[in-house]
Design a protein around this nucleic acid. Sequence first.
DNA 1: ATATATACATAATTTTCTTATGCATATGAC
DNA 2: GTCATATGCATAAGAAAATTATGTATATAT
Lengths: 110, 110
Amino acid sequence: MGNSKLYKGSLNTIILKLLSEHDKMYGYEITQKVKALTKGEFNITEGALYPALHKLEAEGLLDVEVAKVDNRLRKYYKLTETGTKETVNKLSELADYIKTMQSLVNPKLA
Amino acid sequence: MGNSKLYKGSLNTIILKLLSEHDKMYGYEITQKVKALTKGEFNITEGALYPALHKLEAEGLLDVEVAKVDNRLRKYYKLTETGTKETVNKLSELADYIKTMQSLVNPKLA
DNA sequence: ATATATACATAATTTTCTTATGCATATGAC
DNA sequence: GTCATATGCATAAGAAAATTATGTATATAT
């Protein structure tokens, strides 16, 4: 996750959520999208992203489709049915985590 | 972090925050406190906690004081000055992370 | 007497990331 | 025309932070 070394485990959630909104995306596009959406706060490194995509594919959560654009290779990823279900789970887990974490760290606002 | 395998990196923040509120605590007490405060959602495992405490001590963020209660050993940890400053940083980073993550995952509410 | 709670600790392994490379094409600046 | 930057993929070595599995020891409740 580049500069913010914190909170490992959120990369998969980010990938899945983006794909649930954009139908299909390729790796480089994901890194740029995250950078733009977070105003540069999250920088997904390639060394983290590509292995993560490969693993999600191996687990059956993503399908791949190779394309050639401007003579350059692109690998488009999209959610499978299982991936769509898992996205819901991950987002729910994230919401729970945030809620619990805030109750721990800022009990007065909980 | 026991059941929630997610979001590694928050353990140190949790420890520091608890110590900023409780002056001194021992390891087992921390595990019980977290379990109680999160209603069982976060279960800090000993294999994660003790090495984390040792590291925070080695980094100069915590001081230790050994005590014997009921013939059982306890190691009380408390924040050093540096530890107090670092707690502020960690909490700020956590707030940023949560904010950024929510803007990614739930852009409509951001 | 036996299980559970209290209290610490470490070792082996796994997961997930960072950092460092490597390859290749396209484009803009000079 | 060449040189830097952007686009686009990939993997390997290492670090960080957990999990899981042990190990030791005392206290308490059934």
